[in-house]
Design a protein around this nucleic acid. Sequence first.
DNA 1: TGAATCCCTATCGAATTAGTAGGATTATCA
DNA 2: TGATAATCCTACTAATTCGATAGGGATTCA
Lengths: 154, 154
Amino acid sequence: MKLSTRGDYATRVLLELCTAEGPRPVSVTDLANRTAISQKYLEQIMGQLRSAGIVRSERGLHGGYELAREPDGLTVGEVIRIMDGPLAPSPCASRSAHVPCPAYRCAVEESCVMRSLWLEVRDAIAEVLDRTTFGDLTRRQQSSLALSRAMYHI
Amino acid sequence: MKLSTRGDYATRVLLELCTAEGPRPVSVTDLANRTAISQKYLEQIMGQLRSAGIVRSERGLHGGYELAREPDGLTVGEVIRIMDGPLAPSPCASRSAHVPCPAYRCAVEESCVMRSLWLEVRDAIAEVLDRTTFGDLTRRQQSSLALSRAMYHI
DNA sequence: TGAATCCCTATCGAATTAGTAGGATTATCA
DNA sequence: TGATAATCCTACTAATTCGATAGGGATTCA
Ligand code: FES
Ligand code: FES
């Protein structure tokens, strides 16, 4: 049930975009440096996020990327689906992009016991990822930052 | 968050072993025919399940495989972990086989916002898979079978 | 002895993943 | 206007994983 680097990197970068201080938009060079991701690889990822309408870009000097949506309206689930495809462990258990299992394996999909289990798993994953927004993550990061600052000053 | 064919096949075969009628133990040839899985590939999978103590084998003529444990004491989560490794989306979020993230990406693991989210996801998956036993699946299959038989006789 | 079975290991092709590379286009600013 | 810094686009590639195949050895029993 592993996450690909694309999903991983995309979420990291978006969180960075949420919390970034300094001039907007942020260039890929900056983003790559701050997140320790290969710049050229990150360019591709940002392109994909742009065509999905998650970020918007400005070209030319002082160009870069910024969020195209409110952090509170952008869920992690949406981003993961864009980068890695459906959340379901099995294509037959996807609600967003259903693909049936080969007929000779599972005669009737509706009564397939394994499928109903994979559906449960899919729903459990989706419940977490579709309720968590980048606004949530941003606030969590800020409060954990405040906590560590307080610790430091004791 | 895809399941590999090994995890998929292993669960199918174990469910087949739970519900199989006829002589025990069941040969790989039979199992492969009933589940439409390549016989040689299935041999490898059964070997792995055997060394993990999930099934026991008998060699020689009339040999084959049978469950080594009570279906009600065997969870799907255990099987998936054996075949596919940890359930967590990220190695740093695994409780059974934790591996830290590269330090230059996430300075302090305990305060990493992404990791806490992957932990939530891992726990959501584990909750479903660790509470579902092959006994449960067997009963579900039997009741769905009984239902379809009833439908047929209407 | 011979047939059916598990057991072990090596190999292999295809697909996917992760990353590189090179250059075209666009905007800014001195 | 020209240098520069940025996005954008596409092709390529190296590495890994996945799914499966292959061959043969060991074991059991009729
Ligand atoms: S229908 Fe997909 S697992 Fe049975
Ligand atoms: S510690 Fe693993 S994602 Fe941050």
